[in-house]
Amino acid sequence: MSALERAEIQRLREGSPWTGLWAVVAKEMADHLTSARMRILELLILLTAGGTVYVAMQQIRASIGSDRFIYLKLFTLSQDPLPSLIGFLGFLVPLIAIALGFDAVNGEFNRKTLSRILAQPIYRDALLSGKFLAGLFTLALVFSAIWLLIFGMGLIGLGVAPNSEEVGRLLWFLLATIFYGGIWLVLAQMFSVVFRQPATAALAAIATWLFFTVFWNILASLLAQSLRPIQYGFLQEALAQAELELALTRISPNTLYAEIAIALLNPTVRSLGFVLPFQLEGAILGTPLPLHQSVLLIWPHLTGLIAATILLFALAYVLFQRQEIRA
């Protein structure tokens, strides 16, 4: 039977492919939120958030300024040797996301639960989608809780309520953080479809993360140097090379997330690319951008992260759908 015929049959099938989706989501979320694995990670991120925010608050109190955006400072201020909260989030988010997803499908295989679940009146579409949504919702829940905790700490420690601009920026940042997690979640889930051993899937996901964290920037630099060499030493050549390198590094979700953090949490940041001196002529430096402009600045990044998450999910979905149930 050709793939086309199969597609034809599937098209003629009755019922929604999402039957039972919410049962899967509810069960998986309950699993995530009660599993020892997640408890450990939640504790870890709670301690980091508490620690970095406390340190940031000390610094804010030490320099009593009329800063409009002290709540943003809670995320960005750091004090040696402790990195800032966004520094920690950069690797804690992928860690949590991978922990949520690396045994999604192969775990079901190994526990021999898959065929039993699929014998229920649901399509297998619901299973992977449900696991993906449950992971995403768990990430949203955990990070929302962390955000609220930070707001709470700020209210107690600083005695100032966040202004609407700060709340808006932090909500957008929360969305970005959730989808930054989402991309690693869906990658881990994809590996859990591909690899039968959860350990292999986890390792593959972490290796991918390491690749983007450590090696991709080096590789991007080398690629840019070889693809756009500086032959005559013109400014345009150097600019072209630097722009290519920037574009290449932006393939990495880490870069995207870091840039989102910079633009959203530092309202005075006007551009994430290269700025030529003449572009700053007449500019009033140090004035914050309005929120919607900061959001526009990171819009390609944010939508890119979301789209990449969805596309990776599509890939994982296709891989899972094509698999034979019998192991």
């Binding site: 597609a7 599937q10 399509y123 944010l302 939508t303 969805i310 979905y317 759908q321």
Partner: peptide, 28 residues
């Protein structure tokens, strides 16, 4: 905000890909 629309279109395309995948490979 034209760029904003481009981003939304990007996400819409991604969602479209998922929908195609569901039509093509779904309900198994």
């Amino acid at each position: 905000t034209l760029w904003g629309i481009t981003g939304v279109v990007l996400i819409a395309i991604a969602v479209g890909v998922v929908m195609l995948a569901v039509i093509r490979f779904g309900r198994r």
